[in-house]
Simulated scan of single mutants.
Amino acid sequence: MGHPAEHSAAEKTKGHGLFALALGSVGVVYGDIGTSPLYAFREALKPVAHDGVTQMEIISLISLMIWTLTIIVTFKYVLFLLRADNDGEGGTLSLLALMTKGACGHRAVLMLLGLIGAALFLGDAMITPALSVLSAVEGLKYVSPHFESAVLPISIAILVALFAIQSKGTGMVAKFFGPITAVWFLVMGGIGLVHIFDDL
């Protein structure tokens, strides 16, 4: 039986490790989820923005986004994808391998579908960082028009730094972007709470 002091130290270390993992997941996982609605929101309002955006249009769009995210996470991931695995492995190619095990005469079709899925995943992985960073940095031009010319260079610098760090492993990205993304969410949430009752 271990010494109480050693047990306490182990618990503290475990707690710090869990906190670090949670903070890292904010940067790696939830950073994408948190920034994607920025450009989606902007693009969705573009068709009606020429004559002004009404409160009802904004509320309707927010409702649509919330329900979309809820339904996708609940039904697609929790009820389906978390149950579909190939000996604990997930992903498009892993699931393709699982399907081809029981396929008789449709291996070519399944292979084609798997390649299409992988291509879509790679395309999304390439375009999402650029859109997310650009959408986040574009907020500077609303602070001051003088920042508009700096949006693209700043975005490029962030992306170059991101991929330079990523070559060191996902852990480095998590350590770097975790705190930044956490502050981002706290600021956005705080601003939202302050103004949530403005139009009621």
Rank of each mutant, 00 (worst) to 15 (best):
M1E: 03
G2I: 14
H3T: 15
H3C: 13
P4Y: 12
E6Q: 15
E11G: 00
K12N: 03
G17A: 13
L18F: 10
F19K: 10
F19G: 08
A20I: 04
A22N: 07
G24V: 07
S25I: 09
D32W: 09
T35C: 01
S36Q: 07
L38G: 00
L38A: 01
Y39L: 10
A40Y: 11
F41M: 09
F41H: 05
R42I: 12
R42D: 08
A44W: 02
L45W: 04
P47Y: 02
A49G: 00
H50G: 03
V53W: 04
T54K: 11
Q55I: 07
E57H: 08
E57V: 04
I59M: 06
L61P: 07
S63A: 11
S63W: 05
L64E: 03
I66W: 05
W67T: 02
I72N: 02
T74P: 00
K76T: 06
Y77C: 01
L79C: 13
L81F: 12
A84N: 14
A84I: 14
N86I: 09
G88T: 05
E89C: 02
E89L: 10
G90T: 05
G90S: 02
G90R: 05
G91K: 00
G91E: 02
G91Y: 02
T92C: 04
T92K: 01
L95Q: 04
L95G: 01
L96T: 13
L98Q: 14
M99H: 14
K101I: 09
G102H: 13
C104K: 15
H106A: 13
R107A: 10
V109C: 03
L110G: 11
L110N: 08
L110D: 11
L113E: 00
G117L: 01
G117R: 02
A119E: 04
L122R: 04
M126H: 03
L131H: 02
S132C: 12
S132D: 15
V133L: 01
L134F: 12
L134D: 01
S135F: 06
V137H: 04
V137I: 15
E138Q: 09
Y142V: 07
Y142L: 03
V143R: 08
V143P: 05
S149A: 15
A150G: 00
L152F: 09
P153Q: 06
I154G: 00
S155E: 06
S155G: 03
A157H: 00
I158W: 12
I158C: 13
L159W: 05
V160C: 05
F163Q: 06
Q166E: 09
S167C: 08
S167R: 15
G169V: 11
K175E: 14
F177L: 14
G178W: 13
G178P: 12
T181S: 11
T181P: 03
L186C: 11
M188R: 11
G189S: 08
G189Q: 07
G190C: 07
V194D: 01
V194M: 09
I196L: 15
D199V: 13
L200H: 08
L200M: 14
